[in-house]
Amino acid sequence: MKSDKPVMLITGTSRGIGRYLAEYYLEKGWSVFGCARQESGLDHENFTSFTVDLSDESHIDQMFSELKNHTRRIDAVINNAGIASMNLLNLTPYATAQKIFSVNVLGTFSILQKSVRFLKKSDTPRIVNFSTVAVPLRLSGESLYAASKSAVETMTRILAKELSAMNITCNSVGPAPIRTDLIKGVGDEKIAALLKQMAIHRLAEFKDVSNVIDFFLSPASDMVTGQIVYLGGVG
């Protein structure tokens, strides 16, 4: 892998937005490291993937240990991986609640904790976390998923301050619903009701997400940190 290319770590690259982002940034000339519970099947000379369960810290340790053999520098960390469970309070098993927080909050925390030493070596270090419009819309049935993303938002704002001494910016993008596996269990009626609450009444597309991330990653965005940008006009 050529060292002059900008280097990115994306979590959750086996499918959905993560897979799209890996392909998108490879196309733009980045070296991309990806991770997911399953193999991505993505074959590209500048793509390296790791099989990682983000709810298991030892997996994350192992990934970073291997990552060191490939690169000492990371320019951007995209914490895309996340799981959702759309259930009302009393219909959500405790184990599901634990899993959501384990992946969405602690997984993000752990990835960031171990990324700092790599980001420090970049001239334009960037962190982009993933939130959701479910946070500002306070959607029924998404209490745990939205709460986990609220935690990610707070972490984003605080890490923006903590990491500013290292010139690392830390922001979040909050996508509107996109046709991915994450919302496959959500009925059309519910999606339609959700879209009604947004200023722009349509599902988001992958390119809407990469547009926001491009803005965060731009070298000119070095004054932009601690921000949460939602798609679709909510918040």
């Binding site: 000492r72 700092v116 030493r117 420090k120 001494a165 290292m166």
Partner: peptide, 9 residues
């Protein structure tokens, strides 16, 4: 933190 990261390197 800076010191320990540098030290690990």
């Amino acid at each position: 933190l800076n010191l320990l990261i540098d030290l690990e390197e």
